[in-house]
């Protein structure tokens, strides 16, 4: 008798498993068709790095070398020279070797002026690793076409259609919760 009970128990358990599988049939699939449908990427997502320029087209970067020092894989190479007109430095060369970049965003974190930022631009697979060695013109170009980017210092920024740059509302900010709550308390 106990044998029969065991067999029945096994059959019942198998039936439960099969029911669990069958329950999924009606549910909609979660598949995304990548080249046809682009995934939605949160603005903070570290997909690529870019150099942002000011609205007037000048570099935000002040050549402080902080990012070069902070990079764990040491892939940033900066050469600077004294600014002929005025104080400070200007960039001569800003190379970033994406082959070895870990996308850790340490460089973005230390940048005092949010010149180097993370963007959600992820379609950069290439056939030749050498094509992943980026120079300043390339990083600028990515920055120019970025509509949304993130840096811890300024938060998420958006480029308006007229070209002006603005901070995104707190709903879009990755760390926006405290800000929202503070706003509520103030109101």
């Amino acid at each position: 008798m106990s044998l029969l009970a065991e067999v029945w128990e096994a059959v019942r358990a198998i039936g439960q498993g099969m029911a669990a599988v069958n329950r999924r049939v009606g549910e909609s699939a979660v598949t995304e068709f990548y080249p046809y449908q682009k995934p939605e990427i949160p603005p903070v997502s570290v997909q690529f790095l870019a150099l942002i320029q000011n609205e007037d087209g000048s570099d935000r970067c002040v050549s402080c070398l902080a990012c070069e020092r902070a990079c764990p894989s040491q892939v940033i190479t900066i050469e600077r020279k004294r600014n002929p007109a005025g104080k400070g430095f200007v960039l001569e060369r800003f190379d970033l070797d994406f082959v070895n970049c870990m996308h850790c965003a340490n460089c973005v974190e230390v940048c005092p002026v949010s010149a180097i930022v993370t963007v959600g631009d992820f379609e950069h697979a290439v056939y030749d690793v050498n094509m992943l060695k980026a120079d300043k013109a390339f990083l600028d170009e990515i920055g120019r076409r970025a509509q949304v980017w993130y840096s811890p210092k300024f938060g998420v920024e958006i480029r308006k259609p007229d070209g002006s740059i603005e901070k995104a509302p707190p709903e879009m900010q990755p760390g926006g919760l405290a800000e929202l709550l503070a706003g509520e308390e103030g109101a």
Partner: peptide, 23 residues
């Protein structure tokens, strides 16, 4: 050192073949 070529849109845009495979 070779540089990344511009423009950037290197990836191949998929062509639809009469029907939409995503639907």
């Amino acid at each position: 050192m070779s540089r990344m070529p511009l423009p950037l849109d290197r990836h191949i845009k998929p062509k639809l073949v009469g029907y939409d495979p995503t639907r």
